[in-house]
C-alpha cells in the first residue's frame, strides 16, 4: 500500500511541477515568475521527501531537502529585494 501511495503522490507532484513550469515560462510579470520558482523549490522538497521514504536506507535526501529549503527561501527574498530596490544589499 505504501508503494502505491508513493507512486500516486509522485505522479501528483510531477503534474504540479509541470504546472509551475508553465507558469514560470508564461507568467506575464516578474513576480509571477518568482512565485513559480518559489513553488517549484517547495515541490522539489516534497519530491525529495518522497524519494527519502522510497529509498529508506540513507538520510541524504533529508539533508538535501533541508538545504533546498534554506537556499530557496534566501533566493526568493533576494530576488524580491532586487525587484523592489534595484539592488540586493545597499
Amino acid at each position: 500500500m505504501l508503494k502505491t501511495a508513493i507512486s500516486i503522490a509522485f505522479i501528483m507532484m510531477v503534474i504540479a511541477q509541470l504546472l509551475n513550469l508553465y507558469r514560470l515560462f508564461k507568467g506575464p510579470s516578474l513576480p509571477d515568475r518568482i512565485l513559480a520558482l518559489d513553488t517549484m523549490y517547495i515541490d522539489a522538497i516534497a519530491l525529495f521527501i518522497l524519494l527519502g521514504i522510497y529509498f529508506t536506507t540513507t538520510t541524504t535526501y533529508f539533508e538535501a531537502a533541508l538545504i533546498i529549503a534554506v537556499m530557496g527561501f534566501i533566493s526568493t527574498v533576494a530576488t524580491c529585494k532586487y525587484l523592489m530596490r534595484g539592488d540586493i544589499v545597499e
Partner: peptide
C-alpha cells in the same frame, strides 16, 4: 496522498 493533493491544488491555483 493528502500532502500531494494539497500541493497539486496549489499549483492548479497558480
Amino acid at each position: 496522498v493528502l500532502g500531494a493533493f494539497f500541493a497539486l491544488a496549489g499549483s492548479i491555483g497558480s
